[in-house]
Amino acid sequence: MNSHRVHDYITDILACSGGTFVFKGMGLLKTSRVCTANPLDIHHILSKNFNNYPRGDTFRQIFDVLGDGFSNTDGEVWEFHHNTIMSLLKSPSFQTLLEDTIWDKVEKGLMPVLEYVYKQEVEVDLQDIFQRFAFDTISKLLFDSDPKSLSLDLPSVPCEKALSEIEEAIMKSYAWKTVDQFIYKSLAEKQKEFISEVNSKTQEDKFSTAFLKSYQGQSGSCGDPNKFLRDTLLNLVVAGRDTNSSALSWLFYLLSRHPMVEDKILEELHTQLNMKKCGNLKDLQAIDLQKLVYLHGALCEALRLFPRVPFQVKTPSQPDILPSGRRVDHNTTVILSFYSMGRMKSI
């Protein structure tokens, strides 16, 4: 009865039960589930006693398309991913590359498309626009190649389309094959380029090059270095495409329903940009983003109300007692409701 509003329904129950509730399996189904939006419980599971709460085999089976990627592994493999990827993302060269890549796509992809839509007075799906924007950006970063899915004719790019289909139904086999074809082809081209650079000792300062260098000789639990790279790249593509596009889609959805907030954002932009002197996008790029306090607040509100990952599932490997007093063991599935956390008045 509440499947059409499942997250709000769970939030209502959590609000009535102090932030944590238990429902137990009947008959032969002896597993019980604990659903929580209690900040202390969630901190305990995701930080304080993190090693006791792996994703587990069931999670890996459901999301087997992600293979040995960072969002689908535990233990040593996850540790390696975490340390390696965080090190790459924190490097100053990556931050510079990220800014350059995003602004290049804004100037050559996003703005021309939006201007065309505006002048032609045609209706478009903004979520599709933002997914294309994010897909082109993450592809450029990882493979040093721009698929140009965000163009005036909004071309059909098989991999970009297949990523949405994979998420709609985990799993459609042909969608999986389409994504693999894109990644393996891009990976082969980058590996060939990487080997050439190593032999000539003239490696360029690219994220894709640094990535391949960091993962050289690693094969994960599958024992296949190429498959391990494929899994990692797919996880990064999904993370890079979906987090940004989802956040932007919800932000603009909320702005369409709250024109007063939109007016305040525009007022802040005009004040900080000094529009009389603003000739082009480069002037917008040069602005100190820390000055856009209201815009930052609106984006944070959109993320609070519609988090990209609304919930996460964990299963303890050893019996444990949560700060809320709930006992859990290896037969207990723990559901962390981030969506509910953002809507609990008590929090």
Rank of each mutant, 00 (worst) to 15 (best):
N2A: 07
N2L: 03
H4I: 10
H4W: 12
V6M: 11
V6D: 10
H7E: 12
D8T: 05
T11E: 03
T11R: 07
D12A: 00
I13G: 04
I13M: 07
A15D: 13
V22N: 05
K24I: 02
M26D: 13
K30T: 09
S32R: 06
C35A: 13
N38D: 15
L46V: 03
S47P: 05
N49D: 14
N51I: 07
P54G: 07
R55G: 12
G56S: 13
D57Y: 07
T58Y: 09
D64Y: 09
V65R: 04
D68W: 01
G69C: 02
G69A: 01
F70H: 08
F70Y: 05
S71M: 04
D74K: 12
D74N: 15
V77E: 11
H81S: 05
H82W: 01
M86D: 14
L88W: 10
L89Q: 15
P92A: 01
P92H: 03
P92S: 02
S93A: 14
F94N: 12
Q95H: 12
G109R: 02
E115H: 06
Q120E: 15
E121W: 00
E123I: 00
V124K: 04
D125T: 01
A134G: 07
A134V: 01
F135N: 12
T137I: 10
I138N: 11
S139V: 05
L141D: 10
D146V: 01
K148W: 01
L150S: 06
S151G: 12
L152T: 06
L154S: 14
L154M: 15
P155G: 05
E160A: 08
L163W: 06
E167H: 06
A169K: 12
M171D: 15
K172V: 13
A175Y: 05
A175R: 03
K177M: 09
D180F: 04
D180R: 08
F182K: 03
L187E: 10
A188H: 14
A188M: 06
E189I: 02
K190P: 12
Q191Y: 04
S196I: 00
E197N: 04
V198Y: 07
N199V: 00
T202H: 11
D205N: 13
T209H: 10
F211N: 11
S214Q: 14
G217C: 06
G217D: 11
Q218M: 02
S219L: 03
G220C: 02
F228T: 07
F228V: 02
T232M: 08
V237S: 10
V237T: 11
V238T: 06
R241I: 05
S245Q: 12
L248H: 13
S249E: 08
P259Q: 06
E262V: 00
D263A: 13
K264Y: 05
Q272S: 11
K277H: 03
N280P: 08
L281A: 15
K282R: 06
D288A: 01
V293Y: 01
V293F: 00
Y294W: 02
Y294D: 05
Y294H: 02
L295V: 10
H296L: 03
A298V: 07
R304Y: 00
L305T: 08
L305P: 15
P307K: 01
V309P: 14
Q312F: 00
K314M: 03
P316A: 09
S317N: 12
Q318N: 13
Q318K: 08
S324E: 07
R327H: 12
R327M: 05
V328Y: 04
H330W: 00
M341K: 03
G342A: 09
R343S: 03
M344W: 10
K345G: 07
K345M: 05
S346D: 14
